[in-house]
């Protein structure tokens, strides 16, 4: 028991990552608010980051961690631009509901 409690199989981390990713996709589908849809995308990004770090640990490859670092930087830039777009949309349409923001819908 003591030796078992000291270590965790890496597949558990990967399972957690895939479950988090699926929850992010479900949130993307069921949420009706533009900001929470965006948050679900961030959740998916985080889930993928977790699997990157897990594989970096498995193969002792530090470049996997650096890839996560770059993903974080791009996510920061993406969040800034995305939230600016949300502010612009709210200013134009006075709503955040994705059902009413349908200008580009076919």
């Amino acid at each position: 028991m003591s030796s078992f409690a000291q270590e965790v199989p890496l597949s558990w981390y990967l399972l957690l990552s895939s479950v988090l990713f699926s929850l992010g996709v479900v949130g993307f589908l069921i949420k009706r608010n533009l900001i929470t849809v965006f948050m679900s995308i961030e959740l998916m990004l985080n889930a993928v980051n977790l699997s990157f770090v897990t594989f970096a640990h498995e193969w002792h490859a530090v470049k996997g961690q650096i890839f996560v670092f770059f993903v974080m930087m791009v996510a920061a830039a993406e969040a800034a631009v995305g939230l600016a777009i949300i502010i612009a949309v709210f200013r134009a349409r006075a709503t955040l509901s994705v059902d009413r923001i349908n200008l580009m819908k076919l």
Binding site: V8, Y13, L16, I35, F38, M39, E42, N46, N49, L50, V53, T54, A56, H57, Q65, V68, F69, M72, M73, A75, A76, A79, A80, L83
Partner: peptide, 26 residues
Amino acid sequence: LYLLLGAEFLAAAQIIVYSGAIMVLF
């Protein structure tokens, strides 16, 4: 969890960038 996987730098960056900066923006 990153800290448990031995990625200290990413754990700090995750807290500062994600739960700090990005979520403050949200």
